[in-house]
Design a protein around this nucleic acid. Structure first.
Lengths: 352, 352
DNA sequence: ATTTAGCACTCTAGCGGGTAGAGTGCTAAA
DNA sequence: TTTAGCACTCTACCCGCTAGAGTGCTAAAT
């Protein structure tokens, strides 16, 4: 069933996908000939479409309807036929400019990335903040609040900040707290949880206790996929005809709402089937994700591998402008990677 | 058209609302008699329903259909007829317990609040974090990163934390930075932006510069309605029949997605028409909000007025279980207010 | 060996008519 | 004032029909 299509068949398959993405209606042989001024008759096209249908790349909603790509068809298109629609240079510049103008606020970057992705792909986007794979201590601060309660602020290499309220066994004056925090900051700077645990025994009572919380928090930082998942363009997917019945829409949106589902998905998808230049393409849920049966999910990682990475994703109908979406993803991933690299270099420099 | 209904008419109006909320189908006179074992005939009910229709509280989708509440009908119901469905004690305890178990992480509180609200109301919920009306400095930290770049961490009374990267005119060693931060923290603790601005001239070069950023950030904190708006239960509203056509669904969800719209709404709604014990009830967009024509929005504030407050909201179809939703809102607002008050007291105590 | 014109065939979307039933409003009696 | 009874209205649904879109196949043309 899946023998290699001829060149002409591949060409026609690409046209069918393109046309179907554009119109959301089954594509007929005559439409193709007229729309793309093909140098052959509709009968010839019909024969070829019949062959593609035989091979499993197209299907007919019913006997007297045009053709629609199957999941297999989309996969073949994305993997073998698609040419990326490069973003116009002006657009790239505008976007780059926006990011650099935004300063160094990670949260703003994430919102902007989500917004750009949603706009360009006309689908729902999701972005996770860059997340250190090994959380290393950059700075510790202890602030006395009331009695035995202390606010612990943990600055992690890369800029992430964690806060937490501790309850100590007895009240400790601010001077003492500052002194301990300062000692820990200086002596354990740039160390990760494991390393701090090994050195913990060198510290006395209060510092020893505090380090317990620090280690705990560093581990927590490594474990959580990311504090927050930024999304945008949810309403885009509701606008698509395949989600007009709203039951399908719910299925898809549930993913974006239930972070646990999403995290599982992200975790399992790192090793996904269809990858184009670092972009994972999940079409129709790949038979595994019931809720995504009608949808496609594109994912890519950005950042500096081994140090801090995050995820960019687009969720939309299977009938999606893969070319434009993938190249947007790639462009944004590159841009964000540069930004992350720069902040890491800054930290690095500080270390030496 | 709006003369006062008789007692019996009010009673029947309440029944119609109740029944329609339950079934989402037009309510007939016979249904009412049977469902609620009324001590009168369907003909009598019919006469009363006709009167209520005349008054504008009910309408008929077509001649031979049952009755459906109008916006006016819902307003009358909420304002005059509704009895709140108190949450069962066991539920209150469970929820309270969850909050106290969660510790002092504000973000977790918000997520939990959004989740509880969405569940209880079976609609979409939105929650903004408690936000100080006057941002007062609690603690300042300056951390050298690379060359002239410095990470400024601002802890604000109430627990909020802001971070920002500054670029100084020349490199400054960490010791000097710490000393300046420490001096500022000690001397300007608990002061707000205005107060710090007045005292700024007492400080020398570096500290003076830094204070500029501090003042700026404090103002920013006061201006932003809240860093983040937490939502949950978006898929609940998609499940409602009135949103099955997806165009309506988009309109409603757009509000929750576009934070600017939402902020405008929150700002203008503080002075809204229909308020029940602190809960603002916006029915059918009150003629102003085109996107909410089919929806109702319930809002309430929580926190300590004049110090730190936040907003709780529920967005759902006009056909909503107002009783349960409002009492849930009230309960949660009280709970969160207590929590906020406690953290404020802690800070207060620390001050003395 | 392909390509293509021609044509019979199939299936859907849409329309009109016809019907059952739900629910009303009204009238007249209780 | 309530209620039984009934005529009336409107919808939802089913049915059959038709126009048209698009196919697959066959046989001729290249």
């Amino acid at each position: 069933m899946n023998r290699e299509p001829t060149e002409r068949q591949k060409f026609l398959l690409a046209l069918v996908v393109h046309e179907y993405v554009r119109t959301a209606m089954p594509v007929s042989s005559l439409t193709l000939v007229e729309q793309y001024k093909l140098d052959m008759s509709s009968a010839t096209v019909r024969n070829e479409l019949a062959a593609l249908t035989e091979m499993g790349y197209l299907r007919q909603p019913h006997t007297s309807a045009g053709r629609v790509p199957t999941e297999e068809g989309y996969r073949f298109f994305v993997g073998r036929l698609m040419q990326e629609t490069a973003l116009p240079d002006s657009m790239r510049h505008t976007i780059t400019h926006q990011f650099y103008q935004m300063g160094t606020d990670v949260e703003q970057w994430m919102r902007l990335a989500a917004s750009v992705l949603a706009h360009q792909s006309r689908a729902a986007s999701l972005v996770t903040a860059p997340h250190p794979e090994r959380a290393r201590l950059k700075h510790l601060e202890l602030i006395s609040t009331r009695g035995r309660q202390v606010l612990m602020v943990l600055v992690i290499v890369g800029g992430e900040i964690r806060q937490r309220i501790l309850t100590l066994s007895e009240p400790v004056p601010q001077e003492k707290l500052s002194e301990v925090a300062d000692r820990i900051s200086r002596q354990l700077q740039d160390r990760d949880a494991d390393s701090i645990r090994a050195l913990r025994s060198h510290f006395d009572g209060l510092a020893y206790d505090i380090l317990g919380y620090v280690i705990d928090d560093l581990y927590k930082t490594e474990r959580t996929i990311s504090g927050e998942i930024f999304t945008d363009g949810l309403t885009n997917v509701l606008a698509e005809p395949e989600f007009s019945n709203s039951e399908e829409a719910r299925r898809a949106l549930r993913l974006l709402e239930e972070r646990t589902l999403l995290q599982e998905l992200l975790a399992r998808t790192v090793f996904a089937t269809n990858a184009v230049g670092g972009v994972q393409v999940l079409i129709g849920g790949e038979g595994t994700w019931e809720d995504l049966r009608q949808s496609s999910l594109l994912l890519t990682r950005y950042g500096v591998p081994g140090q801090a990475t995050g995820t960019l994703g687009v969720l939309g109908p299977m009938r999606m402008a893969y070319g434009r979406t993938i190249s947007t993803l790639r462009f944004l991933a590159g841009l964000l990677s540069d930004l992350v690299a720069e902040t890491l270099v800054e930290d690095e420099h500080h270390t030496n």
